[in-house]
Design a binder for these strands. Structure first.
Lengths: 145, 145
DNA sequence: CAATAAATGGACCTTTATGTCTATAATAGT
DNA sequence: ACTATTATAGACATAAAGGTCCATTTATTG
């Protein structure tokens, strides 16, 4: 459904939202169980997508760039791994602009459904909704603010 | 949304449904614009999934194993590339059996939506619904029955 | 039986996604 | 100014998906 990379990005964002203060890559990686080296790549993409702000040096790390209410799941997924849209017929056939054949219309509709669902969910919903945000990632002394 | 392989499988099945008689791998590959060598792999998977019947030798090829009304898009996708279900928390956390955290619940729900949408569409719908099935794949002399 | 036409199975190659490692650049504290 | 800490960038490695090729098997026809 979504790529591994998108999963990682979502976990990291949820973690930052829970935490409400800067966290280093190491901390995020540990808490979210993402390979540290790879996480840094993902965080870079999130930074480029203006979803987090990064700060180097001591006391630095990553912080959300916006309120959790204003970040959708779709924003996050798109930042690292844009959902491809299928606006063009995968066969080489020209001439039916947006008039996709029934097969591709079905696929396109399913994609749109997912996009809408993801666009409607905000980061804030993901943390207030349960006592178990992020599958109970523990806020240990090392990753608590 | 769906893998390349699943796309290929769907195209091949639509083609067979339109055609209503046996077609060889070559014919299907040409009509659906799938690399012939790869298509044969895909067809094998469809055969193992009992969606098509295969026949070797002269006059052989592939035929649908069931009426197009009784084959769903989901059947086809599952035959070649099962949608992974996310029933287990991707973090290592034990203990919340089906009680996924909000994040994973969202992803899981989106997956379920797509599955339902695909389960509801049948192959027959894909061919009767328009004059342009399969993005106007032409039935040339070489691929017509 | 021989020849041809097809699918099957397996080995192999290529590309993309995922993951690792290291050197560099920026920042803060001393 | 120096050192420690942190993100950044890029090279590299591994795994998975996509794709090619060929020998083998099964079937049909003459």
């Amino acid at each position: 459904m979504i790529s591994q990379t998108a999963e990682y990005a979502l976990r990291a964002m949820v973690f930052l939202a829970i935490r409400e203060s800067a966290a280093t890559g190491q901390e995020i990686a540990k808490a979210t169980q993402v390979p540290p080296g790879y996480l840094s790549k993902v965080m870079q993409q999130l930074a480029k997508g203006k979803l987090v702000k990064s700060q180097r040096g001591m006391g630095g790390g990553f912080v959300l760039a916006r309120e959790p209410e204003k970040v959708s799941i779709l924003d996050i997924v798109n930042a690292v791994d844009p959902i491809e849209k299928l606006l063009v017929c995968p066969l080489g056939v020209q001439g039916h602009g947006l008039n996709l054949c029934p097969l591709h219309k079905r696929i396109s509709e399913a994609t749109a459904q997912v996009e809408n669902a993801f666009a409607r969910s905000t980061l804030s919903e993901l943390i207030v909704e349960s006592k178990n945000p992020l599958c109970s990632v523990p806020l240990t002394p090392s990753n608590r603010a």
